[in-house]
Amino acid sequence: MASCSIPANKAKHESTTTNPNWLELPKDITSNILQKLCPVEILISARNVCPYWWNICKDPLMWRTIRMTDIHMLRYNSSNLSNICRYAVDKSCGGLEHIYIKFFGNDDLLQYVADRASKLRRLGIEECHRLLSNKGLIKAVKKFPLLEELHISKCHLLDKVSFDIIGQCCPLLKSLSLFGYFKCDRQAFEIAEWMPRLRHLKILNNNNLTNDGLFALLNGCTLLESLDLRGCFYLELTESIKQRCNMQINDFLLPLDSMDEDYYTFSDPDLLLTRLRWRSNIEN
């Protein structure tokens, strides 16, 4: 009976081809792979794998973007996450361009970033609740003259944000994304007056924005290319208003347009009731 054994030299060849040496990857590819990780993962574990990865993680270019939004970060307390974030900011050596903080942001941390990241172009803050104040945000953005994108989501400070001051301090702002309530149309008026260069505007799940605020935005932000009003069920969008929006803006999303699960939540019964009424009025 013929033998089915694999020659030793062939087995050795297959073994070497199926187990590549990660240390032989070019530096730029390894750097790109490591940048896919959360800063917590990089600083706690990845950089400790070997001296080669350690040296790559020391490069300030690795830290131009700091995105700390992973739900798994919650295994660490806010103080530890804040310290890790500060360390990552220091590693950027002043070259930080984009930072997105979720869950643990506070006034002191944002000021720490502001003092060390004058080149910041994109800032994202999500679910920081009472740890971050309007005063803290305004104090920080005064040191971000190059800021082009601002995202504020599910934060209690949203109904107090002074968009007039942000507009004056950040004249290059092109993209503004807001998830949550305004107190009234006042903030829409501020955006319209002080942010005329906006190209992209998202106002999501806002139950206080009215037609007056929308008209102010359309009249003041004439360069808008996209306008997202999903979840803004207090608006009364007639056919003429929708026609104007579609003529003025390339990408226009209505209150009832579909939204990702992470955004489209109706934990607020008043918001759910308003949505049902809004749908009923449209269908009738």
Rank of each mutant, 00 (worst) to 15 (best):
I44T: 12
A46C: 10
A46I: 09
V49K: 01
C50A: 03
C50K: 02
P51E: 09
W53T: 07
W53E: 06
N55Y: 08
C57V: 05
C57T: 13
K58H: 10
K58T: 07
K58W: 05
D59N: 15
D59R: 05
D59K: 05
L61T: 15
L61E: 15
M62H: 02
M62A: 03
M62G: 00
M62W: 00
M62I: 02
I66N: 02
R67G: 04
I71F: 07
I71D: 09
I71M: 05
L74C: 13
R75E: 14
Y76K: 03
S78M: 12
S78C: 10
N80S: 12
N80D: 06
L81E: 04
L81A: 08
S82W: 00
S82D: 04
I84Y: 08
C85L: 10
C85Y: 01
R86E: 15
R86Q: 15
R86P: 03
R86L: 11
Y87H: 14
A88N: 00
A88C: 09
D90S: 14
K91Y: 01
K91T: 03
S92T: 09
S92Y: 03
C93G: 02
G94T: 03
G95F: 10
G95P: 00
L96V: 04
L96Q: 05
I99S: 02
Y100C: 13
K102C: 11
F104R: 02
D108G: 11
D108N: 15
L110F: 07
Y112K: 05
V113W: 00
A114P: 03
D115G: 00
R116F: 01
A117V: 04
S118H: 13
S118P: 12
R121S: 08
L123Q: 06
G124E: 05
G124R: 04
I125V: 14
E126T: 14
E126S: 15
E127D: 10
L131H: 14
L131Y: 09
N134H: 07
K135P: 00
K135M: 06
K135S: 11
I138R: 03
I138Q: 09
K139G: 12
A140R: 05
V141F: 00
V141I: 14
K142D: 10
P145Y: 08
L146H: 13
L147R: 02
L147K: 02
H156M: 03
H156L: 10
L157H: 06
L157V: 11
L157F: 14
L158H: 01
D159V: 13
K160G: 08
K160V: 05
K160E: 15
K160D: 14
V161S: 01
S162M: 08
I165K: 10
I165Y: 05
I165R: 10
I165C: 05
I166G: 00
C169S: 15
C170W: 00
C170F: 03
P171R: 08
L172K: 12
K174P: 00
S175A: 12
S175H: 13
S175N: 12
L176K: 01
S177Q: 15
L178D: 01
L178M: 10
L178Y: 02
G180H: 09
Y181C: 08
F182R: 06
F182H: 09
C184E: 14
C184R: 07
D185P: 04
D185E: 04
R186Y: 13
Q187A: 08
